[in-house]
Amino acid sequence: MHKSYSEKYKKEFENYLIEFLPTINRKPTQANQMAIDVFYLERNYPQRDFMYWFQSDDTFNEAKEVLDMLFKNRKSYKKSLKDHIDYMSWFKQFLNDNERFEYKTSKNFDDNKKKQSLSDSQIKCQHNEIGYYKIIKRYFYEILPDDVDINEYFNPKRKKDMKEIFYQFCLNMQDYNMMPSVIGFMREDRKIQFSKIFLNYDLKAVVITYTEETLFKKFCNEFEVKNKESKNNLWRRYARSIMDSCVFLSRFANAKDFNDYIESFNGNLDIIYDISSHIRGMGFALACNIIKDLGFVNYAKPDTHTKDVIEAMGYLNDDVSVIRAIQNIANENNDTAFNVDRMIWLICSGYFYNENIRVGSHKKDLIQRIHDYR
């Protein structure tokens, strides 16, 4: 099971759709979204191998009709959580009501690929979560410096008021690619400036005071902003994400209301899709990171470190697979996905940031131990 399987095959399917969509009067620009949709369906309904369905001569016309139905009904649903669930429920019911769409195995079906279904039962049969967990934990304590208080790194507490939650969004929304070095939210010389700009993180006051454009102008007045006219200006993108975050968070009366809402998903990834669909600039991994850092320990961030380590264990390394794998490892060891994620990150980065201690990356050694164990 390698990275090439999930990403390469999804890309091949997208390329196939680019040629196929015009035959049913659909724009080829919709290929990417439909590839994601169908890939998502395959993962959540592993008994049906949708993408292989299109490659079988016996079922090609049926698959074509199903894809056409998917397109028609997708227009009826927006990207809110409720509509997403309704959309998936509709598709499942559609298949149940139409027995003639039963999947038939292609003559060229690769049995090895069939094993890569992501149902929890199959994952537990194919992997040794207890053994991998022991390797990670043992290695973590081997590299742990004496002066580090590990209690500060694990089991984060929930935020008690909306100011804390909004602050976390402001922090995380600049935590990808080149954003931290440009925005510099955590720079000592900018902390007071950001607090003033965001009105002491008063969510309602920010919504009343700013628009996306006026917030961007405020940034330009306070900081040295280059390429102001560019649509891709990082400060402009940050302003957009902050205002979207304000609108999203305004749905909740208080921190308890917000926490109860997130908690109601109990580790389900639908909450990630919900948040990322409301806030521009927030991808899947970034949404995972925010939820994790807000104290919801059933979630992990699928970053380059966790992906490489999880792939070494034999899992697929796309975002969804990585989170599910970490959740399974945590559940089998009475720990949290947050703690497993944090141990992997500290080992791979070698950076204990609270004490500003660097011990160097140990990712290669950790991966080697996993390979030796397998």
Results as ranks from 00 to 15, higher is better:
151 N>L: 02
151 N>I: 02
151 N>D: 06
152 E>H: 03
153 Y>V: 00
153 Y>N: 07
153 Y>C: 05
153 Y>A: 01
153 Y>I: 00
153 Y>M: 05
154 F>P: 02
154 F>Q: 02
154 F>C: 06
155 N>C: 11
156 P>M: 07
156 P>V: 01
156 P>Y: 11
157 K>V: 05
157 K>D: 09
158 R>K: 15
158 R>H: 14
159 K>V: 12
159 K>Y: 13
159 K>E: 15
160 K>D: 12
160 K>S: 11
160 K>G: 06
160 K>V: 09
161 D>W: 03
161 D>Y: 03
161 D>K: 03
161 D>T: 01
162 M>W: 03
162 M>A: 09
164 E>T: 00
164 E>G: 02
165 I>W: 00
165 I>R: 05
166 F>V: 08
167 Y>I: 02
167 Y>F: 07
167 Y>S: 04
167 Y>N: 08
168 Q>F: 03
169 F>C: 02
169 F>R: 02
169 F>A: 05
169 F>M: 07
169 F>L: 03
169 F>G: 04
170 C>K: 05
170 C>Q: 06
170 C>L: 00
170 C>N: 01
171 L>I: 01
171 L>A: 00
171 L>Y: 12
173 M>K: 05
173 M>R: 00
174 Q>Y: 02
174 Q>H: 03
175 D>A: 14
175 D>C: 10
175 D>Q: 08
175 D>W: 08
176 Y>E: 14
176 Y>Q: 06
177 N>V: 11
177 N>Y: 10
177 N>K: 14
177 N>L: 06
177 N>E: 14
178 M>P: 08
178 M>L: 10
179 M>H: 12
180 P>Y: 12
180 P>A: 08
181 S>G: 14
181 S>W: 14
182 V>K: 13
182 V>C: 13
182 V>E: 13
182 V>Q: 12
182 V>F: 13
183 I>Q: 15
185 F>A: 00
185 F>L: 10
185 F>Y: 10
185 F>Q: 03
186 M>E: 13
186 M>L: 09
186 M>I: 11
186 M>F: 09
186 M>C: 09
186 M>W: 02
187 R>F: 10
187 R>I: 06
187 R>E: 05
187 R>T: 08
187 R>W: 01
187 R>K: 05
188 E>W: 07
188 E>G: 09
188 E>C: 04
188 E>A: 14
